[in-house]
């Protein structure tokens, strides 16, 4: 019983924390972000398993986490507002070579990030070559080049 409650509580907590920290938090993972993720995993582990190190407990925890994930994905398919709530929405941050500054500031993205994505994804050199830059739901920036 408590394994299920623990897993559900931690799932919910991590969901809220990562949603609050914002898109950019884990988008472009630096080495340090990766280390941070490992530490978060380490800190979570104890609370998740409690003092019960049996295989059964591990199975229950894993099943609960995956089960909630499946359940939410099913609900998200039915309800667009829930999907928005959990995953966020994409945001246009550059239109016809013009960066939309206020949106970029709020989303904590700068022109350097857009240019980096443009170089990586499309081999573009300047902002004016970009038609649209979109901050996607997972925090990456996608680029639509001008024809």
């Amino acid at each position: 019983m408590d394994a299920v409650i623990r897993s559900a509580a931690i799932y919910l907590f991590l969901l809220i924390v990562f949603r609050i920290s914002g898109k950019r938090s884990l988008a472009q993972i630096t080495t340090f972000d990766f280390v941070l993720l490992l530490i978060i995993g380490e800190a979570t582990q104890q609370g998740l398993l409690g003092q019960d190190f049996s295989i059964t407990n591990a199975f229950i925890v894993i099943l609960t986490l995956i089960g909630i994930d499946i359940g939410l994905s099913l609900l998200k398919q039915r309800s667009q507002s829930l999907e928005k709530l959990l995953d966020g929405v994409p945001l246009i941050i550059l239109e016809n070579g013009q960066p939309l500054k206020d949106r970029m500031n709020k989303a904590r993205v700068d022109e350097g990030d857009i240019l980096e994505a443009a170089r990586e994804l499309q081999g573009l050199e300047r902002l004016e070559q970009i038609k649209y830059a979109v901050l996607e739901r997972d925090g990456r920036i996608s680029i639509v080049p001008k024809q």
Partner: peptide, 22 residues
């Protein structure tokens, strides 16, 4: 514009506000 996208500025602003409160 020319892109088909689920952008929702009102919701996005709400998210930003909630995030800052968070």
């Amino acid at each position: 514009g020319d892109v088909e996208i689920n952008q929702d500025l009102d919701f996005q602003r709400l998210v930003w506000t909630v995030q800052r409160v968070g």
